[in-house]
Nucleic acid binder design. Structure first.
Lengths: 229, 229
DNA sequence: GTTAGCATGTAAGGAGTTACATGATTTT
DNA sequence: AAAATCATGTAACTCCTTACATGCTAAC
């Protein structure tokens, strides 16, 4: 089966494109802005990902005619119908010549994004996955947010237990550097647990009125509408 | 060009085997004890790694009290030893055929380990690499330790700069969750920088007498000697 | 007498990474 | 006109993960 891209990148790309259509280069900058401290992607990761999302029909190339502006989508160029098919023979048979390729979410892509955002399992608790999911909490249902935060906390607490067990079991064998590493690691994890506790508390507080379990699901306009402001 | 294993695992395995010969199963437990909070490996990673280290001649199967036959004594059954003291001791089978394959470092392996420990470049600054290198600081030369700590600190400070730049550049575009993610990430990194500062200070203090640049290199007992029972 | 834990592996593949290659546009 | 930066891509590779397959042995 072809690469079932289910990693961090897919969610990040779909999430960003849900906000506004973008071309690859700009997308990468926003990506690294969004993920900031904890993850960075290069073009060598991004473009193959876009290629495959395109192949799966989750995103589409935006033809110059239909997006008026959408931020940096200025294809002022139109520049000389130069050679677009150099070495690899495959000419890009799209209509207007443009130097940028602007991608937008398709209806399928929006659906897929919703699925990913509704995912509250392991993929959303692990280090990387959690970061991206958290970054898109603004688009995530309140009950899912809570489940993810709690799942993450549980995950970290298991990790704490494991480390503490090791530390007491093998106390005398560890040299001082290893010990210091564990001490610091433990402290970091404990700190993140406290952070999660605060977030959970504030989620519970602000979401006290909203019903968690109801099958609320109301956003899929299949129509193209990338609203042109 | 077989897989030039240059990742976290190689160093961790060589480092652990330098302390004492071990078989795979036990090795993995120590591995996950050593790396504790920040990394975990399964057998599916460990055994292929051992296989390749063996092929490269960096480790060797230990034939304890070889009872004559067996050539390549791969798990020839009927190990009749009494239970060894579980997890704490390395009192292992002192007689008969083993069902375990005990690995030890070869001379080449020791050399390779020294090379890896002397590495103070990017591989030793990145998240994973740093953790392992730090875990073996006890076997690392003092000047290398310092270089690694400083390199790591520089790396983190660059990251801080990057995130801060993004945060001020795109201030109004970030929703509150993304902002909170960045805030927390920033704080975590700042905390690690402070930790590094303390470590660096204490390294400088305690190592003030030792000469940093001298090519001191002094440990190779090629003699084996495991099975202390 | 069957689970639970010890012990060793392999095949397939996932999720990117690195290094490279090329051109267009803007700035100096 | 040169340099910087914008912009898009590919091939090969790395390093590990998942799922599977197998058998021994100790304990309940």
């Amino acid at each position: 089966m072809s690469g079932n891209r289910s990693g961090v990148l897919e969610l990040a790309v779909l999430g960003l494109l849900h906000e506004t259509p973008l071309h690859g280069y700009e997308l990468r900058k926003r990506l690294n802005g969004l993920l900031g401290a904890f993850r960075a992607f290069g073009y060598g990761s991004l473009y193959p990902c876009l290629k495959e999302l395109l192949a799966q029909g989750l995103i589409a190339e935006d033809t110059p005619a239909d997006t008026g502006q959408a931020g940096p989508a200025r294809h002022t160029g139109l520049a000389g119908q130069s050679r677009y098919s150099g070495l690899s023979g495959q000419a890009r048979p799209r209509s207007g010549r443009r130097s940028k390729i602007v991608y937008r979410l398709t209806a399928d892509g929006k659906e897929r994004l919703q699925d990913l955002l509704a995912e509250a399992g392991p993929a959303a608790w692990e280090d990387d996955g959690f970061g991206v999911h958290f970054a898109f909490f603004g688009q995530t249902r309140a009950d899912i947010r809570l489940r993810i935060l709690e799942g993450r906390r549980t995950r970290l607490e298991e990790r704490l237990d494991g480390v503490r067990a090791v530390m007491s079991r093998t106390r005398e064998r560890l040299d001082s550097y290893t010990l210091e590493l564990h001490r610091h690691g433990l402290e970091s994890v404990e700190r993140e647990v406290r952070w999660l506790n605060e977030l959970i508390a504030s989620e519970r507080e602000s979401g006290a009125a909203s019903p968690p379990p109801s099958a609320r699901n109301a956003d899929n306009d299949t129509s193209a509408g990338q609203d042109p402001s």
